[in-house]
Design a protein around this nucleic acid. Structure first.
Lengths: 233, 233
DNA sequence: GCTAAACTGGGACAAGCGTACCGTTTTGAG
DNA sequence: CTCAAAACGGTACGCTTGTCCCAGTTTAGC
């Protein structure tokens, strides 16, 4: 989509409403401060913020069921119940809107991932549940992830996602007393990625995911057992 | 995408030229028989076939670098050096053209994968080379793969792709005398997928891919060593 | 030769897209 | 209250898209 050179994400080039933050790539991209906007009141800000949120939610929803090309200004506006012009008023361009939507999606995904991994059940069950989440959302997410490879700004967000997954995975491994090094985490996360995308795209029936994960975790334990046994000699 | 109902302009299957294969996967409502076109010569057939091939090649090339939305009728026609109308003459719709192009792409990709895995070098080096191929093309491939999750026809092709990768991987493991079960192959292929897509999208520097693959293959050998050692007692 | 079919290719069409314009309404500070 | 700025929203522009039409050309069978 419009692979414009655009070295910088964009600049404060247009009138631009209240939101003073540029593209999401940073760390806490959305609504960082938003406070004390020069001559803006609070009610207005709130309404504007709500509209922005509605637009973002609409974009995410459209992305989920309909895919990438479904996220058009008109569709987003209609879904959010705002006039068409609001989309360009709150977001300089479609690319920017998509970028923000991607950020939001990643945030939600990381939160969901953390919640599942912190939840009940054995680790392998939790991981299996992870890759078997709502397919529509996963498809949209992966679609964006792949698309991110074409845009430096989105690529940064994609890396954030991967890093977040690694962190969540490390926490889960620690909690369940699985011996693990950073390399182990990376290994498992990579496997999880493959499993995740294959499951999402191909949607084959069966327990292949569960089996694969069981095997991977057993490898972890086995490696420890072996080294422990050898060391004990 | 103009999802026109259009039951049939004046016939069930448009004029439609000689190409005798239907939609790549499944059976498809398109060109059911088409065999032995009554009064068609051979020279004409050949020329028509050449054009079809040129169109398909053009579509594949566009798919490779430019991704999915790059495959437009006009772009394909221009790339193939044929007039615009030829695209709708040889393919009923853009979707059909894309499906055929996808099939061809997967075939070629599987062939290329097989060639690399059958080539010289250690297995880990060959696998590393696999995930480090031309990035633009890989991006296009993954884009298509993910998109395939939204279309049953394309999904079937995607599964074919995965199965082909599994087969190629099994062959390579056998050649290099790695002990492996079908589950091992699946495990390794899944890991490879994860590694592949992460490498393609995020393009992080370093030798992480090589390391991860080394580790995975060592796991294979280790499992055998361990079981062998245990059995030897 | 002739005829009907397959093929060619230039052009046109409606639909949908991102985006910009610009007059109107709402808002909050003075 | 006044009033400038911000927010809003209808609408239009320029462009690209997929697809179709149709007159012209080539081909194969007679």
């Amino acid at each position: 989509m419009t692979s414009h050179p655009q070295p910088s994400p964009f600049q404060a080039g247009t009138p631009q409403p209240g939101h003073g933050h540029s593209v999401p790539a940073g760390e806490g991209p959305d609504e960082p401060a938003t406070g004390a906007r020069h001559a803006s009141g609070k009610a207005t800000q709130k309404r504007a913020q709500a509209r922005r949120d509605a637009l973002l939610d609409a974009a995410v929803a459209l992305l989920e069921d309909g895919g990438f090309p479904a996220v058009t200004h008109r569709a987003v506006a209609h879904q959010a119940g705002v006039p068409l012009a609001a989309t360009t008023y709150y977001f300089d361009s479609r690319d920017q809107l998509v970028a923000h939507a991607f950020t939001r999606l990643v945030e939600r995904e990381l939160a969901a991932t953390g919640a599942i991994l912190d939840g009940p059940g054995s680790l392998v069950d939790r991981l299996t549940a992870l890759v078997g989440q709502d397919r529509a959302r996963q498809l949209g997410l992966w679609e964006l992830y792949v698309h991110a490879g074409r845009d430096p700004v989105l690529q940064a967000i994609a890396r954030t996602w991967t890093d977040g997954c690694d962190a969540a995975l490390a926490t889960a491994l620690r909690r369940d007393r699985y011996p693990h090094t950073p390399a182990d985490v990376r290994f498992l996360a990579t496997l999880l990625s493959g499993l995740w995308i294959e499951t999402t795209v191909e949607a084959r029936p069966g327990t292949a995911a569960h089996d694969t994960l069981t095997r991977a975790l057993n490898t972890l334990r086995a490696a420890k057992d072996v080294s422990g046994r050898l060391r004990a000699r």
